[in-house]
Write a protein that binds this DNA or RNA. Structure first.
Lengths: 228, 228
DNA sequence: CGATTATTCAATTATTATATTGAATATATG
DNA sequence: CATATATTCAATATAATAATTGAATAATCG
């Protein structure tokens, strides 16, 4: 291959890969990817959770779709968006990892909003694998029930953090509780652990989230009769 | 945490992570990252190889630096840029992986410029690990010598593809040759294999590149007395 | 010191990205 | 069939990004 066509080849390749880069160049789109990593969701639902207008969310989802990072399934009035495949979540993981490793501001933001995070004694995936078979431990999925239905750690109980305080009596105090949620920067598990401890429970959080657990090749359970 | 501060937290987090996304939103910057994955290089050198003006390359490198994806070391008149750490290469790998998995156009571009690629019978990292200890095999690093010096597969010979034809007599015909280069989309190894076969050698290429080998935790050799 | 060289800076122009708004589309429901 | 609803589309104004140009810096070398 001569120099000119070599350069043309590289330009065409990078022009393709940059479609992915461009799709990642907006904070709303990153948040959408983060939400979609949990379960498929409708446009309006995503717009509401991410604090943006429906039209704006729709446009960003179309941008993500153009880069093939998400897919959509139509059902009646609704469009259910989902991540295209696990490679997309791994890409988001890679960004998170660079941010954690390289951007001091990420840690600063976390410290500002969650000042006593170190005290939560996060449990690693390896530790959690062991604890799954320990009947002195309860694993709690504190995400919204929808996301639990879309996939959860085998044996975990569904108890969304919003309902936790009202349903505390369901949890025995003689067992340690490991709460998990969407990911390392999700506050649900942090809040659950704080609440549980305030009520006299022994509690810790899983360091990561359900999608990280899944792409690590660890087992995920799904309730029957739900959407594929 | 109340809803308002929860949203502020998320916004500040995604605003940080998107610094990384934005840095990846330009084809020249992707190419610069790809080149820097091999070895540190000067601005002028990078500009020349990536076919851009020096001022433009300098600006893009500064953008990458602002996102903490690259670092620079000054030595006299020169600034030597390098990837900040392995997490940055893994991020580029993740983009490549999504592109390969999701973008049909990537495969189309590869087919257009390298039409008989399947015939190269690429060797996986696992296979190559075995072949390293096989004395019927020669492993050939066909990248520029600079990149070989910055790190190569133990036992590999340095024979840049540009010099290959002139130095064919250095290679015995009774041994199989495995050529490797910068990565899966680099044409150096493809060209080396084609040339070698045309001269009666048995030759295949390594499917990936040296940086992929390195971050897979496989051994890398470095010549003494070179830059850190 | 003056000339050379690698790199960065600053200004300019063209292009692209973004959020908002209101309308359009299409499906479901009574 | 009329209404309601979820989503998309189109137009617009604003902001961010990018390449080019020529000048400015700063280190090296004769």
């Amino acid at each position: 291959m001569n120099n000119r066509s070599h350069r043309a080849f590289k330009e065409q390749l990078y022009d393709q890969f940059v479609r992915i880069g461009r799709a990642l160049a907006n904070p709303h789109r990153l948040e959408l990817l983060d939400l979609l990593a949990q379960s498929e969701r409708t446009v309006e639902d995503l717009a509401h959770e991410a604090g943006m207008s429906v039209a704006n969310a729709s446009q960003h989802l179309q941008t993500l779709r153009a880069a093939q990072l998400v897919e959509v399934r139509r059902d009646g009035l609704y469009g259910y968006y989902r991540l295209a495949d696990d490679s997309v979540f791994r890409l988001w993981q890679a960004i998170r990892d660079v941010g954690e490793t390289r951007l001091a501001e990420v840690e600063r933001v976390v410290r500002t909003f969650l000042d006593d995070r170190d005290s939560l004694q996060a449990v690693s995936a390896e530790e959690l694998v062991e604890l799954l078979h320990d009947d002195r431990v309860i694993v709690l999925d504190v995400r919204p029930a929808e996301e639990y239905r879309a996939g959860h750690i085998p044996g975990a109980r569904c108890l969304p953090v919003a309902e936790l305080e009202a349903r505390l009596r369901e949890l025995p105090k003689n067992r340690e509780i490991i709460a998990y949620c969407r990911g390392p920067y999700c506050v649900f598990a942090d809040e659950a652990v704080a609440l549980l401890r305030a009520h006299g429970y022994r509690a810790r959080r899983f360091a990561q989230g359900l999608p990280d657990w899944r792409v690590a090749g660890l087992p995920v359970e799904r309730l029957e009769g739900d959407e594929p």
